[in-house]
Design a protein around this nucleic acid. Structure first.
Lengths: 206, 206
DNA sequence: CGGAACATCCCATAATCATGGGAGTTCGGG
DNA sequence: CCCGAACTCCCATGATTATGGGATGTTCCG
């Protein structure tokens, strides 16, 4: 079964080159190729691509907005970004928006075709630098100084409060009296230098 | 300048094979090789590796804990995980803990050496499936149905409350009366079906 | 025009939370 | 064995929130 590819690229030369490549490769089918993303929702809906090649830098509405739209309406469709710049802030934004990988435009044609297959088969091609960047954003921030001061029980109480529970429910959940909850909360306030649950939670989540 | 590599791998055969490979490669230096992570902090501190190869499955304390310790104390040291299973939940945990990539044990020796270089040079080698998984976790969750019901003002008020502000301060910040804040909060409660600020915030952050 | 949605403000009562003080238990060092 | 840290429980007073009313003005749209 061949992979249906849809192209968004404003540069005519590149668009035609990519189209030609897709058409020349047996396992691919060109679903379409456009120079802007104005009608992206309609086009994706009608042309039913498996993979969309999307230039990040596009006239008018940019590629990132288009990715958001596609992912909102056609979740199973994968989007592969095309860009001239490596390690660009926009690339990261695109990935956050739901792109499944990205390619530099200078990438060798053979590698581009390979990346399309990779995406279709559940992969996520991207450069080493971007991969590292993505991992960085994944890191669980270390427990802050402030939070480290809290005892186990205090942390548990704060966590339950952050979950939206009232003192009463925290007491039930932790298996202690509501008075004890009060006491823990008092200590938490002292240690974090705050004066309300919401303030304490705001600290906790940071 | 050669790359100092430290190995943690409980399987003796594999450990020795890896050690041999490292020593046989000109651009690498073997800083050490151990069968458990009991003294990982001391060892990393003294042996000053550039890259640590860490088996995920380890006797006693597992590799993920070790990664956390290393990243806490020796941030610049990169950790490359070794595992027999692909697309494992633990791999993902390891990456969250701060690992910089991972390799399957069945990976060809040449590729392992390559990955170490890649890590050292700012990359993050990982399998296509894991890369996809990481991207998934990166996605900004679409605004939920519930939150979409809130008007701009209501959302603003909720956001300020989530920041830890009291009604009084929210009023100041939003430039409205405290009575108006009350009214907005009432509407928010009705729409989200909650009965307290903390509950509303818990919904908001999800 | 006449709702409908949004934003603004006020009031009163009940429920919770904030703060300060007091006190008993357990447990692991010094 | 005593101390401190952590956890537990109780009470009282004042501050803040929760909930249910009612009210005015704007904007947008059929």
């Amino acid at each position: 079964m061949s992979i249906r590819v849809l192209i968004y690229e404003d540069n005519v030369t590149l668009r035609e080159a990519l189209s030609f490549l897709i058409e020349a490769t047996p396992s691919f089918v060109l679903a379409g190729a456009f120079g802007d993303t104005m009608l992206v929702e309609k086009q994706v809906g009608e042309l039913t691509p498996d993979v969309v090649l999307m230039d990040i830098e596009m006239p008018g509405q940019d590629g990132i907005q288009a990715v958001l739209k596609i992912r909102r309406q056609f979740a199973p469709v994968d989007v592969l970004m095309l860009t001239v710049f490596d390690d660009d802030e926009r690339v990261f934004q695109a990935l956050s928006a739901g792109a499944t990988g990205y390619l530099l435009k200078k990438t060798a044609p053979a590698r581009i075709m390979e990346a399309i297959s990779e995406v279709y088969n559940g992969g996520a091609p991207m450069s080493p630098a971007i991969a590292r960047r993505v991992l960085l954003s994944l890191r669980q921030p270390a427990i802050s100084e402030e939070m480290a001061q809290l005892t186990n029980r205090e942390t548990e109480v704060l966590s339950l409060l952050a979950g939206g529970l009232s003192y009463k429910l925290v007491a039930v959940e932790a298996g202690i009296s509501i008075e004890t909850v009060r006491t823990h909360v008092k200590r938490i306030y002292e240690k974090l230098h705050v004066h309300s649950v919401t303030e304490a939670i705001a600290r906790y989540r940071r």
